[in-house]
Simulated scan of single mutants.
Amino acid sequence: MTELRSALHDQLTLSRAHAAAYAGDLDLAMSLLGSIPPTVASLDLKARVHAQRGEFSTADSCWIQVLSMESSDPDAKAGREAIARIIAGGRARPLVNAAQAAVVAAAVVATAVVGGVVWLSSSDRAPAAAAPIPPQAHQDSNPLQAQVDELRQRLSAVDSERTAAAARHQQALDTLAARFAGIPGVRVERRADDVRLVFEAGVFWTEAEITTAARPLLTEIGARLADAHASVTIVGHAVAVAGGRTSGGSTVALARAQVAAGYLATGGKLPLTAFKLATADQSEGPFPDAPRNRTVTILLSVPAGESK
């Protein structure tokens, strides 16, 4: 995505540089060209602008760079040949006074504009002003415009697909939340990127000894998971005890996640490998009191590709 936007920016800048050169604003054209990476197209235009300014050596260097990228580029070859003829012609002529030099220079670098591209004329007399080019003809003859339009269309398609994918993802999460609604004693929390199931009462008496009330709840959730097409993470919780660890999770929390996974697997006839196990930090319990934090929470997310 970032690459597409960068490419579109460079193409738009190059198109603006063409327009500036077409309008005779060579300083603006050169400034715009200096802000984008060198390519065959940008170096070719830069060479033409330098040549129009009478900076023939610099123009020749630009075309040499073009040929290093594209050895058979016909415009670069023609440009170098034109400059060679101009320089050779200049050497063959006797020195002229300043006024004559200005006239000769203007004639040497006289330009014709075709499709918005500045081109050299090696004629020794200034040509008549070029006839205006109809806007549509100018646009059709400029391949850059087609590239810019194509990039715009691709970016628009990417943005549209991203928006549609986000909408499908949210719809899939809504469906997951609705599937698990209505189980007594289980709170369904629809969050930005997942659905969390929280048990209102503690799931374990002590250590990993599950309560009688929690068993059917876990079994029911497992049954609803059978065809839910969800990624399931079971997070074990534990409270800090005197003399024990106060952060970083615990083996008790992991054991609770394992016990809960067994009941979910039984309820949905699912393999234990269908569940990811995790432990929460002791400070991350869903409730403010210890009895209810002897529990697990269940995180449901949409697998990659499911919401396409």
Rank of each mutant, 00 (worst) to 15 (best):
Q11K: 15
A19F: 10
A20C: 03
G24D: 11
G24E: 07
D25W: 05
M30P: 00
V40L: 08
S42K: 12
L43F: 03
D44V: 07
K46D: 02
V49F: 01
H50T: 03
Q52A: 13
F56A: 03
Q65N: 12
V66G: 05
E70H: 02
P74Q: 10
P74A: 11
D75R: 10
E81T: 08
A88Q: 11
V96D: 06
Q100W: 03
A101I: 03
A102G: 11
V103G: 06
V103K: 12
V104P: 00
A106T: 06
V108L: 12
V108F: 03
A112L: 02
A112V: 10
G115N: 06
V117E: 14
V117H: 14
S121F: 01
P127G: 07
P134E: 15
A137E: 15
H138N: 13
Q139A: 12
D140N: 09
P143M: 12
Q145T: 07
D149I: 05
Q153E: 14
Q153V: 02
L176I: 13
A178L: 07
D193K: 14
F199Q: 05
A201P: 00
A208H: 12
T211I: 00
A213D: 15
R215N: 04
R215P: 01
L218V: 04
A223C: 03
A226H: 13
T233K: 11
G236Y: 03
H237D: 01
H237W: 04
V241K: 11
A253W: 02
L254E: 13
Q258G: 04
T266W: 08
L272T: 11
K276A: 06
A278T: 06
E284Q: 15
D289Y: 12
N293K: 05
N293H: 08
T295M: 03
L300Q: 13
